[in-house]
């Protein structure tokens, strides 16, 4: 008697998850930083064995391109090639500090996991990274806080010089025009080549000199840097 009840409920749960596997999800992303922008977001639903980024591993060339220059085209191509579903640049440009992009709809199909990336600007190669988060099968609203990672592909010299192409040193730009110039560069010879938790930026208070072109009063952050709200329909 007891046993058959248990089986029945397991069966019900199984049917339930099957029926919701091809889920419509709605994604919101909020920039939680004090004064950094996110470059165009890539929101991707994919299978369990796919990753856009993975801590402890070397960044792919596609990830490097996104983390150093904000270009998500190659990552998007990779996801689509693996039958994933994506939303590219839902905010139609940069997502400023304190800003949100809401109600990004994704029909996930057979894809079970969610990843979100965008470069944190101005930095050398910092990015927000939700890495292969299992999409709940039960309808509801879920909040996930996302940290900033360092792609490990470029030294964090904190010099704003327009350098956004892979392998080119420097920071592409400070979108709010609050960056400095003539920094001598933050150099400490660190050589972690793997994707890791970003140590944060240093910055200084000298807009026309000092070591860094970043402003310690504006561009620093503590984790988490993004709030992601996923509503499973």
């Amino acid at each position: 008697m007891k046993r058959s009840l248990v089986n029945a409920s397991l069966l019900a749960a199984g049917l339930f998850s099957l029926s919701t596997q091809a889920a419509d999800i709605e994604v919101s992303v909020t920039n939680l930083t004090h004064g950094n922008h996110f470059t165009p977001l890539l929101i991707a639903a994919h299978t369990r064995d796919s990753h856009l980024s993975h801590v402890g591993e070397m960044a792919t060339p596609a990830l490097q391109k996104m983390a150093e220059g904000g270009d998500i085209a190659d990552l998007n191509t990779a996801v689509i090639g693996a039958n994933g579903i994506t939303s590219t640049n839902p905010a139609m440009g940069l997502l400023a500090a304190g800003a949100s992009i809401n109600d990004v709809m994704l029909d996930t199909g057979d894809n079970t996991h969610l990843s979100i990336v965008a470069m944190v600007l101005p930095t050398n190669d910092a990015f927000i990274g939700l890495d292969s988060w299992k999409i709940p099968t039960e309808a509801g609203t879920y909040t996930v806080y996302v940290n900033a990672y360092d792609a490990g592909t470029e030294a964090n010299d904190e010099i704003i010089n327009g350098g956004g192409m892979p392998g080119v040193a420097g920071i592409p730009a400070a979108p709010s025009g609050d960056g400095g110039s003539n920094g001598t560069g933050v150099m400490d010879g660190a050589d972690n080549m793997y994707v890791h938790t970003h140590p944060g930026v240093l910055g200084d208070t000298d807009p026309v000199g000092g070591a860094s072109d970043l402003d310690s009063r504006i561009h620093r952050w503590l984790n988490p840097v993004a709030k992601v709200v996923v509503t499973v329909k």
Binding site: L32, T33, H34, G35, A97, G98, R220, L222, N223
Partner: peptide, 11 residues
């Protein structure tokens, strides 16, 4: 900035 955000920390 007049919006609530994650504190960037004390310098």
């Amino acid at each position: 900035v007049d919006f609530v955000h994650i504190h960037p920390g004390v310098i």
